[in-house]
Structure formats: structure tokens, C-alpha cells
Design a protein around this nucleic acid. Structure first.
Lengths: 242, 242
DNA sequence: CGTCAAATTGACAAGGTTCAAGGACCGTGG
DNA sequence: CCACGGTCCTTGAACCTTGTCAATTTGACG
């Protein structure tokens, strides 16, 4: 079983976990619609586009498995990754007719998707979608802060912590470890750095004992310490019950 | 009349222009609700917060006049501006209960606001709001690309072009000129640079004849040329009629 | 005319990039 | 089982963009 498709035998588990985490009050209508949706999957191969800048958005997609990236390519070949898209994430969510995609989304690993149930299926589902969207927005802002005000070491640590937090939410991380399908070059494209510099900083982090990354397995040795060291606080968009 | 409050005598004109631009089909219900809303304004003084990170969002605001910024402050004092908020922009738009603000918004100039009419007033208004939200998101992504892959000169040019485009939409720019209430330090905080470097790059741009910026009046000499030179294409989220 | 914030300047340091080359890893085919 | 090819990772040295520090000038305004 390829490491990047940990749930190929039971697709949709991470996606369901995420939507339930966003709205624990998902009702039966929502769950039933999700089950039906998840029964019809497609798989997109690496480097293929899930959505293309300037093209109409025809449906909302729910990612069941695999990683993708929201990318913008400049005329001279420079490339910027806005954010990563993980299992449970929604693609192309919006509330008006004839939307046009303002960015391109490419698969990094093989990505399994399905058509997301319409929000009208249930108010509880609509709420989960709305919260998902707010979190996406918060992650975009986190990315802006990373690029604007953190140095290379902090950028890397902050991104890895975000990935850990998001994967933990869907049950794809255990402790500080998760499957990391990104190359250093992809990380560089996300962090506004060169792959050479990402490499140097990663080795420094390894020597400092902050992380172990061999093959596709990445472990943050002490996520909480690291979080404290770089002053990160996780994204939050709903009032948590006391 | 202070330059930053060009429409103090007729508040709401830029805001109405923007919403009408986003959805030309705004119906009478929407327009009537907007007129009522715009009749009850408040003004927030510079440096005051319009919304605070971690606090509940109690209502959606519509900006009638003045500039604000969405800001994130780091523990050690570093500051990153996510985006600028201009007349016609909506603050705190979201589709679920008990939202928590994921960023702080501070007034840069005196900012005149009103409570935005509820989306339920009219489907056409809801559509305008949805498009507004999609544009905000696209602007966040533009900011990510700026910070991640553009150099200092390109960042400045790209930001100024975005401001010009947005102000043109609401009728607050004539040709390539608009009132620019930002200090170089604020520009630096938005672009992930230092004010010293922004200053140097601005002078270089002036010497190159790209812009004239004296006092609060800024003019881009040849916006189209500049747009071509840095390879910028404006934000677009709806299919434009052919 | 004095005051304060903002803009400007210079010298120097640092963080990150570029270029170029070598080495490790992995799946494929003979 | 090994050789091959490609992708990714690693390393060094020179270079360049941007940051830092500190001082000076400008401009708005009471």
C-alpha cells in the first residue's frame, strides 16, 4: 500500500473525520449524503490539475485521499504554492453562480476525490462547509505571515506544525509523525525559498534534534516545544466549548 | 475636507458603486436596505480596532470611507499586514454562527462604517457578498504570491497596481492617481520589507519615472506599462460577459 | 518657532540565492 | 542480480538583495 494512500481500503474516513470535527452536530441527512458521495470516487494522478485558473468552477470537490497544492505560476517560470490541500479539504466551495477559479490546483500525490454533496442537503452540512471555508481563509493568512515576517527556519517549522495539526484533525498523524510526500523543492515553492536553502535549514533542524525526516516519514520530535519556540498558535475560527 | 474622506458629504457612494460593480443586478430590496444601513454610520479613529483576533464576530460591517488593514502581530513585535480594506469592502462576512475573528483589523485613516444589511434581504445582495468574499480571497492569494516570489521592486509595483484597480472600481481613482494615506512603514509591513528598503525602492521607481508620490497624492505614470513589466493580471472571479 | 512623525541617507552585516558538481535513492529492464 | 536512468538530496563558494543601525533632513501643524 503506497504510503500516500493510507486509507485506500476505506476511503472517506479522513474526510468524514474532518467534517465531523468542524461540526460535531452533522445530522443523518448530511452523513447519508456524504456516504453516497464517497461511494463515487475518481483518482487524479500527480501533476494533473484538479482545477484551473481562469476556468469555470463546475462543482465542489471533496478530497478523500492524497495531497494537492494551490499554485500560481508566473510568466517567467517562478512558482508559488498558496497552500496545501489535504484529505477532508473542499475545493471550489463558493456561494454564487458562474464562479471562475482564481488559482490552479495540482495533485502532488495521487488524489482521490468525489463530488461534494450540495450544501442544501442539510443546514449542519452547510455549517461544516462554512467553517471549512473560514479555516482555509485563516490558513491563507497564516501563509502570508510566514512569508512576510518569518525567517527560513521559522517558516519551515511553522509549515510543518500546520501540516501536523491539520493531519492530526483527520487522523493521519500519530503523535508528531506523519507521511510527508513533499519534496524539498515543493516545500521551497510554498515558503518562498530555494530548495537549496530549504535543504540547509532542514539539516540544521535535524542536527538540532527538532525533526527526523527520512524517506516519506517525518517526525517532529517535540511539536509543543517547537510551537513555543517560534510563537505559533493554531488556527481557530469557532468558539470552543469551555 | 481631509483627503482621506473624499466622500464625507455623500457617504456610501463608493460602497454602493462596488456592490453594484460586483453584481449589476442588485434589486430594489437590496438597494433600499443599503440606503437604510448607510444612514446609520459610525467613525473609527486611526489605530483603533474594527475587529479583534480571537473575539467573536458580532456583525458584518460595510466600509463607507477610509482605509483599514488586516493585521497580525507577532509576540516579538514583528507585524504583518495581510491586506488593506478600502471603501466598499465588507468586514466579518461569514456564513455560520459564533464565528471567531482570525485576525485583527485596525483603522489606518478615520474609517466610516455601518452595519451591513443581512444577506437574507435579497438574493442579489447575497450574490454581491459572495463575490466580494471570493475577491477578498483572491487578493489574499495575490498577496501570498507577492511575498513569496516577487522582489522588492515588483512587490511595490504590484501592490500599488492592486490598490489602483480596487480604488478605480469604487470611483476613488482618476486615471493612475489616487489618495495614498499609507506611510512607507505601513507599506513595508504589508510587503514583508523594512521601511528603509521601501524608501530606497520608491526613490528608484521615482527616478525611473514610474510614479509620482508627494504628500498624499500618488500617481502611477503608466499603469498599463507597469502591469506588463511585472507581469501582473488583475483579479477576476466571475465570468465577464463577452 | 518648536515639536514630532515621516522620509532620507550611508556604511556595514546578514540571510538567502545562484551556479555547479557530486552522491544517494529507487524503480525498471535486461 | 546487477546495471541503468532519473529524480531528489547534499555540498561549497561567490554573489546579491535586503536588513540593521544610526544620524540627518524634511514637512505638517499648533
Amino acid at each position: 500500500m503506497p504510503a500516500s494512500r493510507a486509507y485506500a481500503h476505506d476511503p472517506g474516513v479522513p474526510a468524514l473525520r474532518r467534517l465531523l470535527a468542524l461540526n460535531p452536530a452533522l445530522d443523518d441527512d448530511a452523513l447519508a449524503a456524504l456516504r453516497v458521495a464517497i461511494a463515487r470516487t475518481r483518482t487524479v494522478r500527480p501533476h494533473r490539475e484538479l482545477m484551473s485558473e481562469g476556468r469555470d468552477i463546475v462543482e465542489t470537490l471533496l478530497v478523500l485521499d492524497g495531497w494537492a497544492a494551490r499554485v500560481r505560476q508566473l510568466a517567467d517560470g517562478r512558482r508559488q504554492i498558496m497552500n496545501f490541500i489535504l484529505p477532508g479539504d473542499l475545493i471550489g466551495l463558493c456561494d454564487y453562480d458562474q464562479p471562475v477559479a482564481s488559482s490552479t490546483i495540482v495533485a502532488i500525490t495521487p488524489v482521490t476525490i468525489c463530488t461534494a454533496p450540495d450544501r442544501s442537503v442539510s443546514p449542519s452540512l452547510a455549517r461544516a462547509y462554512a467553517i471549512s471555508r473560514a479555516m482555509d481563509e485563516a490558513h491563507l493568512m497564516a501563509q502570508i505571515t510566514r512569508l512576510g515576517r518569518l525567517n527560513a527556519h521559522e517558516r519551515i517549522a511553522d509549515l510543518l506544525l500546520e501540516l501536523l495539526e491539520r493531519l492530526s484533525l483527520v487522523g493521519l498523524a500519530t503523535g508528531g509523525s506523519f507521511v510527508m510526500p513533499l519534496t524539498q523543492e515543493v516545500v521551497a515553492d510554498a515558503l518562498g525559498l530555494t530548495s537549496v536553502h530549504v535543504n540547509r535549514m532542514l539539516q540544521q533542524a535535524r542536527r538540532a534534534g527538532e525533526l527526523v525526516w527520512s524517506g516519506r516519514d517525518l517526525m517532529l520530535t517535540a511539536p509543543d516545544d517547537l510551537r513555543g519556540a517560534i510563537g505559533r498558535n493554531p488556527v481557530q475560527v469557532v468558539r470552543r466549548a469551555e
